[in-house]
């Protein structure tokens, strides 16, 4: 095992670059998540963190562990693969859930359902929930 001082300069710069890139994208994604106006817009912000945000940090980790020679570092690819596969699923489900709730409340801002949405009698409007 080699200490951080023995890491070649090019590797240190590459690790630093990808680390900063990844975490900056995650930060900007979260900032957009707070700033954007409605739910469907906010849905786009976290994908910054899950696409190249995760990508950057995973690449940094691979470079670091491969250069220091502690292990053959393709482990991190699993995390990257896992995040890229799972995020779209959660986002799609959340989008559908939000659409479903907005339609149930007859929110005029969302497109109508292709099959008319059944009216539930006595269903009270819920804006906070």
């Amino acid at each position: 095992m080699m200490s951080n001082a023995d890491v070649p300069l090019w590797a240190a710069i590459a690790v630093a670059f990808f680390l900063i890139l990844g975490s900056a994208l995650a930060l900007i994604g979260s900032y957009g998540f707070v700033r954007l106006q409605n739910f469907y817009e906010r849905l786009h912000a976290p994908t910054l963190g899950t696409s190249w945000g995760t990508g950057g940090i995973v690449i940094a980790s691979i470079i670091y562990f491969t250069v220091t020679g502690q292990r053959l570092a393709i482990h991190e690819l699993l995390v990257g693969l896992f995040i890229t596969l799972t995020t779209p699923i959660t986002l799609m489900l959340l989008a559908r859930a939000a659409l479903h709730r907005d339609r149930a409340e007859r929110n005029p801002d969302v497109p109508v359902a292709p099959i008319p949405f059944p009216l539930v009698e006595g269903e009270s409007e819920k804006n906070e929930g």
Partner: peptide, 26 residues
Amino acid sequence: PRAQDRVLGLDTLYVNAMLLLLTFGI
């Protein structure tokens, strides 16, 4: 303001936490 925002917040939170753990690893 709505439940879906909170759930999406949780999702963002855990992704960021996971990235933080990776930086601890480095």
